[in-house]
Simulated assay, not measured.
Amino acid sequence: MRVVDLSQPIHTGMQVYPGDPDVTLTTVATVTEDGYQVASLHAGSHTGTHLDAPLHSIPGGGSVDDIDLARLVGPARIVRCTGLAPNEVVTWPSVADQLGNLDGLTMVMFRTGWSEYFGEDRYLEHPVLAPEVAHRLLAAGIDVVGVDTLNPDPTLDNEGRLPFHAAFLDAGGVIIENLTNLVEVTWDRPVVSVLPLALAGADGAPVRAVALDADGRL
């Protein structure tokens, strides 16, 4: 079975959404001195490759532990929309030809290629998804969407408005951000797992996202 890791490694000083808690991963006990090794992790709920629950932007929305895990494992469609300019908007007409016949799919992932800039200032100038994309996917029965960017909405100069988040999360959808390695998923209908840490009552959580070529075995 082929497995592709779609997750950004979590490490001290890694890039986060502007204003989010800094990430520190520190060894606090070692085998030499203590007989075992333990690390201390300080990070925000939206660190690295992570899941946005409705609570993230919808008052009273569902939290991470409210999400049915069956929604987060299943066949996916990866939409190719590379060669985009910084901050370019991905419209529905520009991707509609790749989003026909979504029957039987659990989620849709958008591959812009922007993950190659993770850790650089340019990563903040990523392409974004038009709100119509959210509405169209929801109408087609897709309520889990992923992006290989920091945000499906603008990260810089957004004036506090996140229209894709508002549309998708208000409908009970789930957003996965900071995916990577989507280019390595070269087969159709990968089985994708984006299971989050079980953070009770949380608005988001890191996930270990993977794509599987299950060959009918799942």
Rank of each mutant, 00 (worst) to 15 (best):
D170L: 02
D170G: 15
A171I: 02
A171P: 11
A171F: 06
A171Q: 08
G172T: 03
G172K: 06
G173E: 03
V174F: 08
V174R: 03
V174C: 06
I175W: 04
E177R: 15
E177L: 13
N178M: 10
N178F: 07
L179S: 04
L179R: 01
T180S: 09
T180V: 12
T180M: 12
N181I: 07
N181E: 14
N181Q: 13
E184N: 14
E184C: 06
V185K: 06
V185W: 01
V185E: 04
T186N: 09
W187G: 12
W187P: 11
W187Y: 11
D188T: 13
R189N: 13
R189I: 01
P190C: 11
P190T: 12
V191Q: 01
V191P: 02
V191A: 00
V192S: 06
V192K: 05
V192I: 15
S193L: 02
V194P: 00
V194G: 00
L195H: 11
L195E: 12
L195P: 06
L195S: 05
P196Y: 07
P196V: 10
P196W: 08
A198P: 13
A198G: 10
A198H: 10
A198L: 12
L199D: 07
L199T: 09
L199R: 04
A200R: 13
G201D: 15
A202F: 09
A202S: 15
D203Y: 05
D203L: 03
D203R: 06
G204S: 09
A205R: 00
A205V: 11
A205I: 10
P206R: 05
V207C: 07
V207T: 09
R208P: 01
R208W: 08
A209T: 09
V210G: 01
V210S: 05
V210N: 05
A211K: 08
L212H: 14
L212N: 05
L212K: 06
L212D: 02
D213R: 12
A214E: 13
D215C: 10
